[in-house]
Amino acid sequence: MMDSPELLFAVEVAVGGLLSGVMYALVAIGFVLIYKTSGVLNFAQGAMVLFAALTFVSLVERQVPFWAAIAVTLVIMAGLGFAIERTVLRPLSNRSPMTLFMATLGLSYVIEGAAQLIWGTQVHRLDLGVSNAPFEVGGIFISTFDLVAAAIAAAMVSVLTLFFRYTRTGLSFRAVADDTFAAIAVGLRLGRIQGTVWTAAGVVALVAGLLWGARLGVQFSLSLVVLKALPVLVLGGFDSIVGAIVAGLVIGATEKLAEVYLGPFVGGGIESWFAYAVALVVLLVRPSGLFGKKLVERY
Protein backbone atom coordinates (compact mmCIF):
# COMPACT_ATOMS: atom_id res chain seq x y z
CA MET A 1 0.00 0.00 0.00
CA MET A 2 2.59 2.52 1.06
CA ASP A 3 5.01 1.97 -1.69
CA SER A 4 5.68 5.44 -2.99
CA PRO A 5 7.77 7.73 -0.82
CA GLU A 6 5.55 10.68 -1.78
CA LEU A 7 2.49 8.97 -0.42
CA LEU A 8 4.40 7.97 2.69
CA PHE A 9 5.38 11.58 3.19
CA ALA A 10 1.80 12.75 2.69
CA VAL A 11 0.60 10.28 5.29
CA GLU A 12 3.27 11.43 7.69
CA VAL A 13 2.20 15.04 7.18
CA ALA A 14 -1.44 14.11 7.68
CA VAL A 15 -0.72 12.16 10.87
CA GLY A 16 1.33 15.05 12.21
CA GLY A 17 -1.60 17.30 11.35
CA LEU A 18 -4.11 15.04 13.05
CA LEU A 19 -2.04 15.09 16.22
CA SER A 20 -1.81 18.88 16.24
CA GLY A 21 -5.52 18.80 15.58
CA VAL A 22 -5.91 17.07 18.92
CA MET A 23 -4.13 20.01 20.48
CA TYR A 24 -6.58 22.40 18.84
CA ALA A 25 -9.50 20.32 20.03
CA LEU A 26 -8.08 20.43 23.54
CA VAL A 27 -8.52 24.19 23.64
CA ALA A 28 -11.84 24.06 21.82
CA ILE A 29 -13.36 21.70 24.40
CA GLY A 30 -12.93 24.35 27.07
CA PHE A 31 -15.10 26.64 24.93
CA VAL A 32 -17.74 24.00 24.30
CA LEU A 33 -18.21 23.29 28.01
CA ILE A 34 -19.10 26.89 28.71
CA TYR A 35 -21.05 27.45 25.55
CA LYS A 36 -23.29 24.49 26.26
CA THR A 37 -24.36 25.71 29.68
CA SER A 38 -24.31 29.46 29.42
CA GLY A 39 -24.48 30.13 25.69
CA VAL A 40 -21.32 32.23 25.98
CA LEU A 41 -18.46 32.09 23.56
CA ASN A 42 -15.73 32.54 26.14
CA PHE A 43 -12.98 34.39 24.33
CA ALA A 44 -10.97 34.43 27.56
CA GLN A 45 -10.36 30.68 27.31
CA GLY A 46 -7.02 31.39 25.60
CA ALA A 47 -6.04 33.79 28.36
CA MET A 48 -6.96 31.11 30.88
CA VAL A 49 -4.67 28.67 29.07
CA LEU A 50 -1.87 31.22 29.36
CA PHE A 51 -2.64 31.92 32.98
CA ALA A 52 -2.62 28.22 33.85
CA ALA A 53 0.64 27.46 32.10
CA LEU A 54 2.34 30.56 33.48
CA THR A 55 1.23 29.83 37.01
CA PHE A 56 2.37 26.23 36.81
CA VAL A 57 5.74 26.94 35.29
CA SER A 58 6.44 29.78 37.72
CA LEU A 59 5.66 27.49 40.65
CA VAL A 60 7.96 24.78 39.30
CA GLU A 61 10.71 27.34 38.79
CA ARG A 62 10.30 28.29 42.44
CA GLN A 63 11.15 24.71 43.40
CA VAL A 64 7.59 23.56 44.02
CA PRO A 65 7.44 19.82 43.22
CA PHE A 66 5.75 18.88 39.93
CA TRP A 67 2.57 17.34 41.32
CA ALA A 68 2.21 19.93 44.05
CA ALA A 69 2.46 22.62 41.37
CA ILE A 70 -0.24 20.86 39.36
CA ALA A 71 -2.46 20.68 42.42
CA VAL A 72 -1.95 24.33 43.34
CA THR A 73 -2.54 25.50 39.76
CA LEU A 74 -5.64 23.34 39.59
CA VAL A 75 -7.02 25.04 42.66
CA ILE A 76 -6.12 28.47 41.34
CA MET A 77 -7.70 27.78 37.95
CA ALA A 78 -10.84 26.39 39.51
CA GLY A 79 -11.00 29.47 41.71
CA LEU A 80 -10.46 31.76 38.74
CA GLY A 81 -13.20 30.07 36.74
CA PHE A 82 -15.55 30.27 39.68
CA ALA A 83 -14.70 33.93 40.30
CA ILE A 84 -15.32 34.82 36.65
CA GLU A 85 -18.72 33.19 36.78
CA ARG A 86 -19.63 35.13 39.91
CA THR A 87 -18.28 38.57 39.10
CA VAL A 88 -18.63 38.87 35.32
CA LEU A 89 -21.13 36.38 33.99
CA ARG A 90 -23.74 36.52 36.70
CA PRO A 91 -24.32 40.28 36.58
CA LEU A 92 -24.79 39.88 32.82
CA SER A 93 -26.96 36.79 33.02
CA ASN A 94 -30.02 38.15 31.23
CA ARG A 95 -28.17 39.97 28.49
CA SER A 96 -27.60 39.07 24.88
CA PRO A 97 -25.00 36.39 24.08
CA MET A 98 -23.02 38.94 22.09
CA THR A 99 -22.78 41.21 25.13
CA LEU A 100 -21.44 38.29 27.13
CA PHE A 101 -18.95 37.55 24.38
CA MET A 102 -17.67 41.11 24.49
CA ALA A 103 -17.35 40.84 28.25
CA THR A 104 -15.14 37.78 27.84
CA LEU A 105 -13.10 39.76 25.33
CA GLY A 106 -12.49 42.34 28.03
CA LEU A 107 -11.85 39.51 30.44
CA SER A 108 -9.14 38.09 28.21
CA TYR A 109 -7.36 41.44 28.39
CA VAL A 110 -7.59 41.43 32.17
CA ILE A 111 -6.32 37.87 32.57
CA GLU A 112 -3.51 38.21 30.04
CA GLY A 113 -2.35 41.43 31.60
CA ALA A 114 -2.66 40.15 35.14
CA ALA A 115 -0.89 36.87 34.38
CA GLN A 116 2.11 38.73 33.06
CA LEU A 117 2.04 41.36 35.78
CA ILE A 118 2.15 38.61 38.38
CA TRP A 119 4.60 36.23 36.76
CA GLY A 120 6.57 38.45 34.39
CA THR A 121 6.79 38.59 30.61
CA GLN A 122 9.83 36.43 29.94
CA VAL A 123 9.55 33.17 28.02
CA HIS A 124 9.61 30.05 30.21
CA ARG A 125 10.63 26.61 29.12
CA LEU A 126 8.21 23.95 30.25
CA ASP A 127 9.48 20.38 30.44
CA LEU A 128 6.89 17.73 31.16
CA GLY A 129 9.50 14.97 30.95
CA VAL A 130 8.06 13.61 27.73
CA SER A 131 10.61 12.98 25.02
CA ASN A 132 10.06 14.67 21.72
CA ALA A 133 11.96 12.00 19.81
CA PRO A 134 10.05 10.66 16.82
CA PHE A 135 9.50 6.93 16.46
CA GLU A 136 8.70 4.93 13.39
CA VAL A 137 5.49 3.06 12.64
CA GLY A 138 5.24 1.35 9.26
CA GLY A 139 7.68 3.71 7.65
CA ILE A 140 6.27 6.97 8.97
CA PHE A 141 7.64 9.00 11.83
CA ILE A 142 5.42 10.13 14.67
CA SER A 143 6.33 12.52 17.46
CA THR A 144 6.22 10.86 20.87
CA PHE A 145 5.17 14.08 22.49
CA ASP A 146 2.23 14.54 20.13
CA LEU A 147 1.12 10.99 20.81
CA VAL A 148 1.30 11.49 24.57
CA ALA A 149 -0.62 14.73 24.19
CA ALA A 150 -3.26 12.93 22.19
CA ALA A 151 -3.50 10.26 24.88
CA ILE A 152 -3.89 12.86 27.60
CA ALA A 153 -6.56 14.61 25.57
CA ALA A 154 -8.38 11.32 25.06
CA ALA A 155 -8.20 10.64 28.78
CA MET A 156 -9.59 14.06 29.55
CA VAL A 157 -12.47 13.65 27.15
CA SER A 158 -13.24 10.24 28.69
CA VAL A 159 -13.27 11.71 32.19
CA LEU A 160 -15.55 14.53 31.04
CA THR A 161 -17.86 12.07 29.33
CA LEU A 162 -18.06 9.87 32.43
CA PHE A 163 -18.62 12.93 34.56
CA PHE A 164 -21.52 14.12 32.45
CA ARG A 165 -23.06 10.72 32.12
CA TYR A 166 -22.83 9.37 35.64
CA THR A 167 -22.62 12.16 38.20
CA ARG A 168 -25.47 14.20 39.54
CA THR A 169 -23.85 17.51 38.62
CA GLY A 170 -23.00 16.17 35.19
CA LEU A 171 -26.55 15.12 34.53
CA SER A 172 -27.89 18.46 35.61
CA PHE A 173 -25.34 20.07 33.30
CA ARG A 174 -26.85 18.18 30.43
CA ALA A 175 -30.31 19.21 31.47
CA VAL A 176 -29.24 22.85 31.50
CA ALA A 177 -27.55 22.48 28.15
CA ASP A 178 -30.72 21.04 26.65
CA ASP A 179 -33.15 23.54 28.04
CA THR A 180 -32.24 26.24 30.49
CA PHE A 181 -35.79 27.21 31.31
CA ALA A 182 -36.93 23.69 31.87
CA ALA A 183 -33.93 23.12 34.11
CA ILE A 184 -34.78 26.16 36.19
CA ALA A 185 -38.37 25.05 36.32
CA VAL A 186 -37.52 21.66 37.78
CA GLY A 187 -35.33 23.35 40.33
CA LEU A 188 -31.79 22.62 39.21
CA ARG A 189 -29.52 25.13 40.76
CA LEU A 190 -28.28 26.93 37.75
CA GLY A 191 -25.75 29.02 39.61
CA ARG A 192 -23.95 26.06 41.09
CA ILE A 193 -23.93 24.21 37.80
CA GLN A 194 -22.46 27.13 35.95
CA GLY A 195 -19.92 27.62 38.69
CA THR A 196 -18.95 23.99 38.25
CA VAL A 197 -18.68 24.30 34.50
CA TRP A 198 -16.47 27.36 34.71
CA THR A 199 -14.33 25.46 37.18
CA ALA A 200 -14.12 22.56 34.73
CA ALA A 201 -13.18 24.99 31.96
CA GLY A 202 -10.37 26.24 34.19
CA VAL A 203 -9.12 22.68 34.59
CA VAL A 204 -9.29 22.04 30.84
CA ALA A 205 -7.31 25.24 30.36
CA LEU A 206 -4.62 23.87 32.64
CA VAL A 207 -4.28 20.65 30.64
CA ALA A 208 -4.18 22.59 27.38
CA GLY A 209 -1.77 25.10 28.88
CA LEU A 210 0.68 22.40 29.98
CA LEU A 211 0.69 20.62 26.63
CA TRP A 212 0.81 23.75 24.51
CA GLY A 213 3.30 25.35 26.88
CA ALA A 214 5.63 22.37 26.59
CA ARG A 215 5.45 22.71 22.84
CA LEU A 216 5.71 26.47 22.31
CA GLY A 217 7.29 27.68 25.54
CA VAL A 218 5.21 29.54 28.06
CA GLN A 219 4.75 33.15 26.98
CA PHE A 220 2.15 35.69 25.95
CA SER A 221 1.61 34.11 22.53
CA LEU A 222 0.18 31.05 24.29
CA SER A 223 -3.09 32.92 24.69
CA LEU A 224 -3.27 33.09 20.90
CA VAL A 225 -4.14 29.38 20.79
CA VAL A 226 -7.65 30.76 21.11
CA LEU A 227 -7.32 31.82 17.49
CA LYS A 228 -6.52 28.22 16.56
CA ALA A 229 -9.50 26.94 18.50
CA LEU A 230 -12.08 29.30 17.01
CA PRO A 231 -12.18 27.85 13.49
CA VAL A 232 -12.29 24.40 15.08
CA LEU A 233 -15.31 25.47 17.11
CA VAL A 234 -17.06 27.00 14.16
CA LEU A 235 -16.46 23.92 12.09
CA GLY A 236 -17.53 21.46 14.76
CA GLY A 237 -20.41 23.49 16.10
CA PHE A 238 -20.12 25.50 19.31
CA ASP A 239 -22.12 23.05 21.36
CA SER A 240 -20.58 19.71 20.50
CA ILE A 241 -17.59 18.08 22.21
CA VAL A 242 -17.51 15.41 19.53
CA GLY A 243 -17.66 18.18 16.96
CA ALA A 244 -14.69 19.92 18.54
CA ILE A 245 -12.63 16.75 18.33
CA VAL A 246 -13.58 15.84 14.77
CA ALA A 247 -13.16 19.42 13.60
CA GLY A 248 -9.83 19.64 15.37
CA LEU A 249 -8.63 16.59 13.48
CA VAL A 250 -10.00 17.82 10.16
CA ILE A 251 -8.45 21.24 10.52
CA GLY A 252 -5.15 19.91 11.87
CA ALA A 253 -4.73 17.54 8.94
CA THR A 254 -5.90 19.84 6.12
CA GLU A 255 -3.88 22.72 7.51
CA LYS A 256 -0.63 20.74 7.52
CA LEU A 257 -1.30 19.25 4.11
CA ALA A 258 -2.13 22.67 2.70
CA GLU A 259 0.97 24.16 4.26
CA VAL A 260 3.12 21.52 2.60
CA TYR A 261 1.44 21.24 -0.79
CA LEU A 262 -0.24 24.61 -1.24
CA GLY A 263 1.98 26.85 0.85
CA PRO A 264 4.96 26.98 -1.52
CA PHE A 265 2.79 28.37 -4.31
CA VAL A 266 1.57 31.34 -2.30
CA GLY A 267 4.64 32.12 -0.25
CA GLY A 268 3.82 30.07 2.83
CA GLY A 269 2.53 31.21 6.19
CA ILE A 270 -1.02 30.33 5.28
CA GLU A 271 -1.71 28.68 8.64
CA SER A 272 -2.79 32.06 9.99
CA TRP A 273 -5.98 31.95 7.92
CA PHE A 274 -6.30 28.57 6.25
CA ALA A 275 -8.28 27.01 9.09
CA TYR A 276 -10.76 29.87 8.86
CA ALA A 277 -11.15 29.32 5.15
CA VAL A 278 -11.84 25.62 5.68
CA ALA A 279 -14.37 26.40 8.39
CA LEU A 280 -16.07 29.03 6.24
CA VAL A 281 -16.46 26.73 3.27
CA VAL A 282 -18.06 24.07 5.45
CA LEU A 283 -20.26 26.64 7.17
CA LEU A 284 -21.69 27.86 3.91
CA VAL A 285 -23.08 24.37 3.48
CA ARG A 286 -23.93 23.75 7.13
CA PRO A 287 -24.45 27.04 8.99
CA SER A 288 -24.33 25.42 12.44
CA GLY A 289 -21.12 23.51 11.89
CA LEU A 290 -20.70 19.79 11.45
CA PHE A 291 -22.23 18.74 14.75
CA GLY A 292 -23.87 21.87 16.06
CA LYS A 293 -27.54 21.88 17.00
CA LYS A 294 -29.64 23.11 14.13
CA LEU A 295 -31.18 26.39 14.97
CA VAL A 296 -34.92 25.95 14.71
CA GLU A 297 -36.55 29.31 14.75
CA ARG A 298 -39.82 29.57 16.53
CA TYR A 299 -42.27 32.13 15.30
Partner: peptide, 11 residues
Amino acid sequence: RGFYLAVSTLA
Protein backbone atom coordinates in the same frame (compact mmCIF):
# COMPACT_ATOMS: atom_id res chain seq x y z
CA ARG B 1 -25.45 34.43 12.39
CA GLY B 2 -24.09 35.40 15.74
CA PHE B 3 -20.83 33.85 16.82
CA TYR B 4 -20.43 31.91 13.62
CA LEU B 5 -20.40 35.20 11.74
CA ALA B 6 -18.19 36.96 14.30
CA VAL B 7 -15.58 34.23 14.00
CA SER B 8 -15.78 34.25 10.22
CA THR B 9 -14.89 37.95 10.18
CA LEU B 10 -11.58 36.92 11.73
CA ALA B 11 -10.85 35.31 8.37
